[in-house]
């Protein structure tokens, strides 16, 4: 790892003042530290967000819950305030030691195309709180490792609306524990359905609109369409594009059946 200056931020204002240029934010660091060890980045300074008090809590609201950006996967998995589907998703990330350190803000800011959290954000229609303002999940995720975050901006929290039904099904890539394909399905009290897919597309997390349309009329695993087109799906040694496309349909059915 190339050396860098270490800056411990104690507030969001503190953090954003220290960011910009070649400075980079670090939250739990469970992705960033291995990346820096591989010398895939050379920040001039790392601004540590893990001690920012205003980003550390889980706040239950009226019909929603807000999770601070610095809240760990473990804390989300143990919380009685977050939707059960989100707690279960958090409990399935990495391994216990990683969950004790990794954070929701870091995951959402990084937008790894195989990460779990982006599918929960998109699959529930979450609001992403950033230091530059609030962004709807539909507008926030803009492709592989690409988000609406501007330079020097950080994710300060995520607000999830409470669904009537929701479930996340993950086909685990056994070496990394990332999703080979993960599907988050939800239905709100007004009947609105979302199906968000991670791990599959070269464009990162996306909504599978054909399945949403079918499920809006009849929320049943029987109506989930067959595999979508394999065009634009990720192909690697763990699975071909066609295999991933097939898994999208399978995991969607499982998620609907488990709701």
């Amino acid at each position: 790892m190339y050396n860098f200056d270490y800056v411990k931020a104690s507030s969001v204002a503190d953090a954003t003042a220290a960011l910009g240029g070649d400075a980079q934010a670090i939250s739990g660091g469970q992705t960033l530290i291995p990346t820096l060890k591989a010398r895939l980045g050379q920040p001039s300074s790392l601004v540590d967000l893990s001690g920012v008090a205003e980003m550390s809590g889980i706040t239950a609201g009226d019909g929603s819950v807000t999770i601070g950006g610095a809240v760990t996967h473990h804390a989300v998995s143990e919380s009685g305030d977050v939707p059960a589907s989100v707690a279960a998703l958090a409990a399935g990330i990495g391994d216990p030691a990683v969950r004790h350190r990794g954070t929701i803000g870091g995951s959402v800011a990084n937008n790894d195309p195989s990460a779990c959290y982006p599918s929960a954000c998109l699959g529930l229609g979450a609001t992403i709180h950033t230091s530059g303002g609030d962004v709807a999940a539909d507008d926030y995720f803009q492709g592989m490792f690409d988000t609406a975050l501007g330079e020097g901006q950080i994710v300060t929290g995520v607000t999830f609306p409470t669904p009537a039904k929701a479930n996340y099904q993950k086909f685990v890539q056994p070496a990394s524990r990332f999703a080979l394909v993960g599907v988050f399905v939800s239905q709100m009290a007004d009947g609105y359905v979302r199906v968000a897919v991670t791990g599959a597309s070269e464009s990162g997390v996306f909504r599978w609109s054909d399945a949403e349309t079918a499920l809006a009329g009849n929320f049943s695993a029987d109506v989930v369409p067959a595999a979508p087109s394999a065009d634009g799906m990720i192909a690697d040694l763990h699975g071909s594009a066609a295999y991933r496309a097939h898994l999208i349909s399978v995991m969607t059915k499982r998620a609907v059946a488990a709701c």
Partner: peptide, 26 residues
Amino acid sequence: DTGQCGACVVNVNGDSMKSCNMLAAS
């Protein structure tokens, strides 16, 4: 040294963590 194997696990403030995947300054 990539955060996979867990040989470096220590306990920090009551939680197990991978000490090869955490900065001393943190």
